[in-house]
């Protein structure tokens, strides 16, 4: 805050201008998504790039919800994303805790291997993954997606969780163990409540990653019943035309769970939960 006090009005204005520009730049595609979703079909091409449509309609939303399989895609996506987020976070939290607190043989090797898995473009391994999934008979199932997404997200989620655990002083669980806890009790009663921001961030990150994943969903799912939302979106593209209005309406609806999810976890993302634990 002290820097604010000393800066000239010009610098402050400049800062807010820059921030404003960035926010507008980042949010513009979202705005466009909403705009097209509520523009009647007949105006989409005639009005071109006008910032505001001259007429509004919610017809696109109605069509998407009633006349298409959108709700089924949506449900599949929720199952896959929530499942992936829950499983990944549970595993990553356990692994992250171990990396943060324990010294064990092969720790560096495991960390190195996990980093290596992050180096390859996913395209390279699509074929082998397809072969494996097909061989175990999991094609066209949501389970296959949950397994694949979990596998890909665990390394990053583990590093994320580890950094959160690293931020919690070791003294706290030692104090807990001296106070009569087993290590597990100390973890549950002392460390876990303090890691909620980390768990929230990890859940959010994995959820969004799974929610918007297209490549594997496209490869592993063919049947309409088990399509996730990003794959389902492609059904709005037909051989001769693209149903822009409906596609955008579906896109807007797909944003809802992500937004809800972040509203729900944002209070855990607030910093400073551990303040007061140790000196300073």
């Amino acid at each position: 805050m002290s820097t604010l006090r000393n800066s000239s009005p010009l610098a402050v204005t400049g800062k807010y201008l820059a921030l404003g520009f960035y926010v507008a730049f980042a949010l513009f595609p979202l705005y466009w998504l909403v705009k097209i979703a509520i523009t009647p079909d007949k105006l989409i091409f005639t009005e071109g790039t006008a910032l505001f449509p001259s007429e509004f309609t919610f017809e696109n939303f109605q069509t998407v919800l009633i006349a298409t399989d959108f709700l089924s895609y949506f449900k599949n996506s929720v199952i896959v994303s929530v499942g992936t987020a829950a499983i990944t976070t549970a595993i990553a939290a356990a692994a992250g805790y171990a990396f943060s607190r324990f010294v064990f043989r092969g720790k560096r090797l495991i960390i190195a291997l996990m980093l290596i898995t992050q180096m390859f473009p996913l395209l390279m391994i699509i074929a082998p993954i397809y072969k494996i999934v097909a061989a175990v008979g999991l094609l066209n199932s949501l389970t296959s997606l949950i397994i694949v997404y979990t596998a890909f997200n665990i390394p990053f989620a583990t590093f994320l969780m580890q950094s959160f655990f690293d931020g919690i002083p070791k003294d706290l669980e030692e104090a807990g163990m001296i106070d009569g806890c087993t290590r597990f009790e100390a973890l549950r009663k002392i460390i876990l409540p303090l890691t909620l921001p980390g768990l929230g961030a990890t859940l959010g990150f994995v959820f969004t990653a799974a929610w918007s994943e297209l490549l594997f969903a496209l490869m592993l799912i063919n049947s309409n019943d088990t399509m996730t939302f990003p794959v389902g979106l492609l059904t709005f593209v037909s051989k001769f035309s693209v149903d822009w209005g409906q596609m955008m309406a579906a896109g807007v609806l797909a944003l809802v769970p992500s937004c809800l999810f972040f509203i729900f976890i944002q209070r855990y993302l607030v910093q400073g939960l551990t303040s007061g634990a140790v000196k300073g």
Binding site: P169, D171, L172, E174, A175, G176, M177, I178, D179, G180, C181, T182, I190, P193, L194, L273, T274, S275, G276, A277, V278, K279
Partner: peptide, 20 residues
Amino acid sequence: VPPRDRDMAMVFQSYALYPH
């Protein structure tokens, strides 16, 4: 014997109070 069964109390340099 694990720390919880040693019947000793410890005051840490960092205080190690449970923040929540």
